[in-house]
Design a protein around this nucleic acid. Structure first.
Length: 633
RNA sequence: GCCGACGUAGCUCAAUCGGCAGAGCAGCUGUCUUGUAAACAGCAGGUUAUCGGUUCGAGUCCGAUCGUCGGCUCCA
């Protein structure tokens, strides 16, 4: 982790780029630092801090790095007369912005100097957050943002006008180089000091900054456009899901259209997994406490679990994961090396008590249906099995046309052994190496991020971004070298001895919730024919054509096409409009001519039309698109 | 969970200083019988999220709760 406190998107993108350039994180980062926009944004962060200090002299400043669309700075405004933490109000941003423009107009030079730890401490004696950073710099463990670093500590500052900040730079030469009309302060947010929820909450101001006014305008426009494909908006408009206050936060209700998406995804998964040698199993939603004690989820994972319920003196939990059940199924009989790998699959419904503020539409919910499976295999089989899962990802991603993602290898960190991670350094190193080798042999590009592993082993996550730029893990592929042992899972090897299998946890299609949330945005609601909840809408021109429309509807329904004849009293144009708004792929307009000739007038969602198409030709077209899961209209 | 903002009809949004809750779309009824993105008319729709307070009077001011949104933390 470098560059900034917990700003994973920026960081990981940087690393992803780096990895494509021969996996040299350093170069990617240095290129970025030299970047003009980087200097501009970084400089604006300093200018904002200066403006805030001038307007709120009591403020304490924390850190203020550039990010991929702008910059932020964290402040501590102290407490008010009643002892409550003082906060920025949205209207304060205007004042600050105005002051920033005044500073820019002064064309203040940015002056660099190196200082000793002593000088730095004197300089920032009234700034406790800076003092803490200086201490870290002096020890050589962290950079000026408090992130871990290997570099030798040089303590330096940049000063513009009266404001001097602990900083490594680089910056623009003087404030006049910053276009005053190409930045905007966007929002205030609370942010914990050093990302630690046990430490004070600071006030963070986010700003966006660009090379010129036009780029700023483009960016703001892009944000507006992104909102239009936000799955929360489209999900309601396309009648895919809703949330209901009385049901509860994070508990989606799938409307009939959402039900169809789910059915189609499950059908896909079943076909693919059957071909790949998986067996399907089913397991209960509730289990005794004992199972999760054995798996290690309790107490480690208890915070994310719904609280237990007690019946006849026994505590039961609702499951947050399917693995322990699958382990039990694996362990239900003696396994020979001959039957390995054993692959157990289930679209299991799990419940996790995500904190209220973490919920986000369908992307982060409390009830979820996972495309789950566990593969039990020998070490010799591991590489092939692991790559087999990666092949599944690639198959699915190609099918959906998903190309903007990053595969992330999450490894352990020695400092977490025995706490966050199972205490077995040898197996950590070994399995991490196995994953790296598998990925290299499969020629799969990935980014490596330390200290992000599961508690039982390293994993490959597929990272994607929502319409509004939030990062999520879509699919996951995890190695588990610890839990099979806890469940006494074994197989009898060639030599007659019992051995512990490795377990691979995988969910290439994610959960229905996150997958569908993502797909809504990915397609902007324009699902390919096979996924579209309604595939064909028949639009009779007058009620004289209703009968023909119903005939067509029956013909298509017999061919297993999802079709609706619109027999409403609106005019044809209005019916077309409503089908367009629901993003139905095919509209069949039928009037006298079509009825006469036994044809349809095809209008596609993209506006393209084909008149006088014989009915059977259309049936052949739509059934072919569905059968092949074609991306084409 | 924490910081900030917000919550008015199924949906999108009005309601000036605290003074009679309103419009468009959707829905229902009727008329129109229509050729590729919105026919016309009428009707109905509300305990202004919930609970409490201030006031002659609260959608509007204050408090609590619930929910949503932007972040932080956390994660499929």
């Amino acid at each position: 982790m470098a560059e900034q406190v917990k700003q994973p998107k920026e960081d990981k993108e940087a690393q992803a780029v780096a990895s494509q350039n021969g996996r040299n994180g350093k170069n990617g980062k240095e290129d970025k630092k030299a970047d003009k926009l980087y200097r501009l944004r970084h400089s604006l962060a300093h200018i904002m801090a200066q403006a805030v200090l001038e307007l709120y002299p009591e403020a304490k400043i924390a850190i203020g790095p550039p990010i991929d669309t702008g910059f932020y700075y964290d402040f501590d405004l102290g407490v008010d007369e009643e002892g409550k933490p003082r906060t920025f109000k949205p209207e304060d941003l205007e004042k600050i912005e105005k002051r920033m423009r005044e500073i820019i107009a002064q064309r203040l030079p940015f002056e660099y100097r190196e200082v000793t730890a002593e000088e730095a401490r004197e300089l920032f004696k009234d700034q406790p957050y800076k003092l803490e950073l200086i201490e870290g710099l002096e020890k050589g463990e962290v950079d000026e943002y408090g992130n871990e670093t290997q570099e030798k500590p040089v303590i330096s500052t940049y000063r513009q006008g009266p404001f001097e900040d602990l900083c490594r730079g680089p910056h623009v030469e003087h404030t006049g180089q910053i276009p005053p009309d190409a930045f905007k302060l966007l929002s205030v947010a609370g942010a914990y000091w050093r990302g630690d929820e046990n430490r004070p909450m600071l006030q963070r101001i986010y700003g966006t900054a660009w090379a010129n006014k036009k780029e700023l305008k483009n960016y703001l426009h892009m944000l507006e456009e992104a909102k239009k494909r936000d799955h929360r908006k489209l999900g309601r408009e396309l009648e895919i899901f809703i949330f209901d206050e009385e049901v509860g936060p994070g508990l989606p209700l799938w409307l009939p259209n959402g039900g169809i998406l789910i059915e189609e995804l499950e059908k896909l998964a079943k076909e693919v997994e059957e071909r790949a040698g998986y067996d399907r199993v089913r397991t209960p939603h509730v289990t005794k406490e004992a199972l999760f004690l054995r798996s290690g989820h309790l107490p480690y994972y208890a915070e994310s679990m719904f609280p237990p319920m007690e019946m006849e003196g026994v505590r039961y939990y609702i499951k947050p994961m399917n693995c322990p059940f699958h382990h039990k199924i694996y362990g239900s009989k003696v396994r020979s090396y001959r039957e390995l790998p054993v692959r157990l699959a289930e679209y299991g419904t799990c419940y996790r008590y995500e904190k209220s503020g973490e919920l986000f539409g369908l992307m982060r919910v409390r009830s979820m249906q996972m495309n789950d499976a566990h593969i039990y295999c020998t070490e010799d089989q591991f590489e092939e099995e692991f790559l087999g899962v990666v092949e599944l990802y690639n198959y699915y991603f190609k099918l959906f046309g998903i190309d903007k993602y990053v595969m992330r290898l999450s490894t352990h960190h020695p400092k977490g052994l025995g706490k966050k991670y199972v205490d077995n350094p040898r197996l950590w190193q070994k399995t991490e190496e196995m994953v790296r080798r598998a990925m290299d042999h499969g020629n799969v590009p990935y980014v490596e991020v330390p200290d992000e592993a599961a508690f039982y082993g390293p994993k490959i996550d597929v990272q994607i971004w929502s319409a509004i730029g939030k990062e999520f893990t879509l699919a996951t592929n995890q190695v588990d070298f610890a839990v099979p042992e806890r469940f006494d899972l074994t197989y009898v090897d060639k030599d007659g001895k019992e051995k512990t299998p490795l377990c691979i946890h995988r969910a290439p299609l994610s959960t229905h919730e996150r997958m569908i949330g993502f797909l809504i945005e990915h397609y902007a609601g324009n699902f390919p024919v096979w996924l579209a909840p309604e595939q064909v809408r028949i639009i009779p021109i007058t009620d004289a054509h209703h009968e023909y429309a119903l005939q067509l509807e029956k013909r298509l329904r017999d061919a297993h096409v999802r079709v609706k004849a619109d027999l409403g009293s609106e005019r044809m144009n209005a019916k077309i409009r409503s089908a367009q708004l629901m993003k139905v792929p095919y509209m069949l307009v039928v009037g006298d001519r079509e009825k006469e000739e036994g044809t349809v007038s095809l209008r596609r969602r993209d506006g393209k039309r084909r008149n006088a198409m014989p009915v059977e030709e259309f049936v052949a077209l739509v059934t072919e698109r569905i059968a092949t899961r074609s991306p084409e209209l």
